[in-house]
Design a protein around this nucleic acid. Structure first.
Lengths: 144, 144
DNA sequence: TTTTTAGTCTACTTAATAAGTAGAGTTTTA
DNA sequence: TAAAACTCTACTTATTAAGTAGACTAAAAA
């Protein structure tokens, strides 16, 4: 399961992607619109800024804005950043690999195979889920 | 990520599947062989018994054994039993559905779509990963 | 140049869950 | 009837998620 923090991050990014290149958006606005606790959201946006996905401007008229093209930011990146590994086991993770203490021999562990498949399919889908596509999808859904 | 409990459950089941129809296996044996804390394993096996996957026999010569065909038990069932939902969001879960408080309108939420795809691919792979296949795979890997 | 606005950063708190343990009780078999 | 095994309730302990407080810094406008 995704953490709430990660859900918040995604919703905030989608909100910012909808307003891409329309100037900075204040934390308060995102917080109000998306029902995210403001202080918590601050921390999340800061993390996204450190990851070079967002940039911020201080003072009046300030706020946060995307510095990447919405087509270049996908759910895989965001989930990895906020929640860490996407794989179901550490010994199957590409970015956060860790040995399993349990299985003596990773090579002959019969369950890794399935979990590698799950990982690969998941990454394919999440990697293809860009902010641009999500915004587009939401728009088409809202029209109806 | 899977919990350790769930990993333990899977390894214990694979161990029992290898010994299917060869009489009860004692908790201590599984615990020793798979490096699972005995007391913790007791609780896990009990849960698997309550789920009618295992049965037990008390007293001397007792132990646990599979009461399902290893081809009828898959990772999807085990993960759901031990860890709960497989989907990445409650509002996308088939067996543990819950409304999202965040999104006002589930129908127009642009991220659900991707996560439904992830769920479906994951379930397909995990549902096809039976104990029988895992045992077979381990055997073929160990031969080399 | 001072006030206001808005993000920055460190350091908490609180609640929930994961992981594991203790120990008395029950059933079965030799 | 003694020993072997599983059963069950009730803990403990560590970790993480989720959220909060408050002082600080930077920028813009009065």
């Amino acid at each position: 399961m995704l953490s709430k923090k990660c859900k918040y991050a995604i919703h905030a990014l989608v909100y910012l992607a909808e307003r891409h290149e329309k100037g900075p958006v204040q934390i308060q606005d995102i917080s109000d619109d998306q029902h995210i606790p403001k202080k918590f959201l601050e921390a999340i946006l800061l993390e996204l800024r450190h990851a070079k996905i967002l940039e911020s401007k201080k003072g009046k008229g300030g706020g946060y804005y995307l510095i990447k093209d919405p087509a270049e930011v996908n759910l895989m990146q965001v989930m990895r950043l906020i929640d860490g590994p996407i794989a179901l086991l550490p010994c199957v993770s590409l970015n956060y690999y860790e040995r399993c203490d349990e299985c003596r021999n990773e090579k002959t562990c019969g369950i890794r195979n399935s979990l590698i498949q799950v990982r690969d399919e998941t990454l394919k889908i999440l990697g293809g889920s860009t902010l641009a596509k999500i915004v587009k999808r939401e728009k088409s859904l809202k029209v109806r």
